[in-house]
């Protein structure tokens, strides 16, 4: 009859008092072990993290859809007065684009003919997968976003992610439904780049600010402010010639790059499904 209180007194109470004494140290130790395990890339641990991203991602996606719907409603209401002018502008732009469509068509035919003539080996076709941004890390210590494109839709580690016009980052974590994009301005980001229309290439490294810095440039290279920085394609991971930003010199003559696009405005990004066909043989 007295088993309940006896169990409590002999087993539960000592465990509870031990826990109260050592909870702080135990949890700090667990946190530190998790950090080290994350760095070392242990497989079991990765699977646990994948499940955590999936659970959190579901909630974040719901919240993101709600906030996007609310924002779009406000924006529509605010822009009601400008619809007529916007329609006139779009009509003009459409007529201009129709003229360019004919020119693009004839240029494309010329291009195909020239490639056949010179037996040109083209780069693989790049397909893209569009996804919605469901969370942003906040900017002060890390710069990454979660998107609702996962391996089920064809996303893979290391794929380039673009906004409407420019490269914004690279996939660093991919789960079934969601992926994390490491932005080019993050401290851990390193992208092989080149200066458009020149032979100067280097590495673009982020520092958690709005700008990223150029490192490992050739010694005698001279860059001008306003030059376009694109991906170089070295290493075969990222497609070449993706626009990134403009060269902007700071006061200390350090070369920094100002990324092109504020990706947050549209709320959508494109994951580029890029892969070299064939294999690279290594001795």
């Amino acid at each position: 009859m007295a088993r309940g209180p006896l169990l409590f007194a002999r087993v539960v109470r000592p465990i509870r008092s031990l826990w109260q004494r050592f909870a702080f140290v135990t949890l700090i130790g667990m946190a530190f072990s998790l950090m080290v395990a994350d760095e070392v890339d242990i497989k079991v641990f990765k699977q646990i993290k994948t499940s955590a991203i999936y659970s959190v991602g579901t909630l974040l996606e719901l919240g993101a859809e709600t906030s996007t719907a609310a924002r779009e409603s406000f924006e529509t209401l605010a822009e009601l007065g400008k619809f007529k002018d916007e329609l006139a502008r779009l009509r003009l732009e459409n007529n201009e684009l129709k003229k360019w469509r004919h020119i693009a068509g004839s240029l494309n035919s010329q291009n195909i003919a020239l490639r056949d003539l010179y037996n040109f080996v083209p780069l693989p076709t790049i397909k893209s997968i569009t996804g919605r941004i469901i969370s942003y890390s906040g900017g002060a210590f890390t710069r990454s976003i979660l998107i609702n494109v996962g391996s089920k839709k064809g996303a893979r580690l290391g794929q380039a992610v673009m906004s409407s016009v420019a490269l914004i980052g690279v996939l660093v974590e991919v789960t079934d439904e969601y992926s994390r994009v490491l932005l080019i301005t993050d401290l851990n980001s390193q992208i092989p780049v080149k200066i458009q229309n020149s032979s100067v290439s280097g590495i673009l490294i982020g520092d958690n600010s709005q700008l990223a810095k150029l490192f490992f440039l050739p010694q005698e290279s001279v860059l001008a402010e306003g030059q376009v920085v694109t991906t170089s394609g070295r290493g075969g991971i990222l497609p070449p010639d993706l626009p990134i930003g403009l060269v902007k010199k700071t006061e200390g003559l350090k070369l920094v790059v100002e990324p092109f696009d504020d990706w947050a405005q549209s709320g959508y990004v494109r994951v580029l499904n890029f892969k070299f066909s064939g294999t690279i043989l290594v001795n």
Partner: peptide
């Protein structure tokens, strides 16, 4: 831990900070 997943910090960092 949830904050780490959201922010993209190494897992355990914000958990340790909160503790």
């Amino acid at each position: 831990l949830m904050d780490d997943v959201v922010m993209g910090t190494p897992l355990g960092l914000m958990a340790g900070i909160f503790i």
